[in-house]
């Protein structure tokens, strides 16, 4: 069972307290009703499925109940870092090889 650091609780908690909520950094368009079919498709249906680093939304649902973002490696299944919802996508990752 993984330990995941909740950026709001500021501690590592067991995986059982969390739930994945899909890919992060996909903002809902402000004028969504005016989106073209293609743009809506990209916004709603198309997701990255990378081998390696992925940016995800998680919710500390059985804890503080906050949504936050996490960087996870899909190869090693390790959490690289977590950060609060609304914070920018990190460009430098701790311990990154590159």
């Amino acid at each position: 069972m993984l330990l995941i650091r909740c950026p709001y609780c500021e501690e590592e908690r067991p995986e059982l307290e969390f739930r994945n909520a899909g890919e992060a950094h996909i903002a809902r368009p402000t004028n969504i009703a005016a989106e073209s079919d293609d743009d809506f498709e990209k916004f709603f249906f198309i997701r990255a499925n990378p081998k390696g680093v992925i940016y995800e939304r998680w919710r500390h649902i059985h804890g503080c109940a906050r949504f936050f973002n996490a960087v996870r490696d899909t190869v090693t299944d390790k959490f690289v870092m977590t950060y609060k919802a609304g914070e920018p996508k990190p460009t430098k990752l701790p311990g990154a090889a590159k």
Binding site: A21, A27, R28, R57, R59, I61, A65, R66, F67, A85, G86
Partner: peptide, 13 residues
């Protein structure tokens, strides 16, 4: 409840 919290926390904070 999850759906409402999701929008409140992340899209309409």
């Amino acid at each position: 409840m999850n759906h409402m919290e999701d929008y409140l926390q992340t899209e309409f904070p």
